[in-house]
């Protein structure tokens, strides 16, 4: 099922890889940035500690996102699995900043 949807979404394997690469590079960065901002605002620590902890984690989050983008079964999962958490983190950061 997911295989089918990935093929429909990404006509050729080459296009599929390109789509994964796009979400890995840009989506992954967006996720890392949003997660860092959210952690910096919401972690129950001193402000500087929370910021630094979030920033320390950001590069691992980015790495994880890239691996997810290429490792998961379908292109749809690659996009959803990165952009949905990114949106959630951005919303959290927005709430925390308000």
């Amino acid at each position: 099922m997911s295989k089918l949807s990935s093929q429909r979404l990404a006509g050729s394997p080459r296009l599929g890889m390109a789509l994964r690469a796009v979400v890995a590079v840009f989506g992954g960065y967006a996720l890392a940035a949003a997660a860092t901002a959210a952690l910096a605002l919401w972690l129950p620590m001193a402000r500087a500690d929370a910021v630094l902890t979030g920033t320390l984690l950001s590069f691992l989050i980015y790495t994880g996102a890239v691996l997810w983008a290429f490792g998961t079964r379908s292109v749809a999962r690659a996009w959803g699995g990165i952009l949905i958490p990114a949106a959630l983190c951005a919303a959290l950061a927005w709430l925390g900043g308000a």
Binding site: A37, L39, A40, R47, T55, A93, G96
Partner: peptide
């Protein structure tokens, strides 16, 4: 590798600092 990124964290990942300060 990881510390190489951390050394440039202000350039690469300022979003936590920008959000909190």
């Amino acid at each position: 590798t990881y510390s190489g990124l951390l050394i440039f964290m202000v350039m690469l990942m300022p979003w936590g600092m920008n959000a909190a300060y």
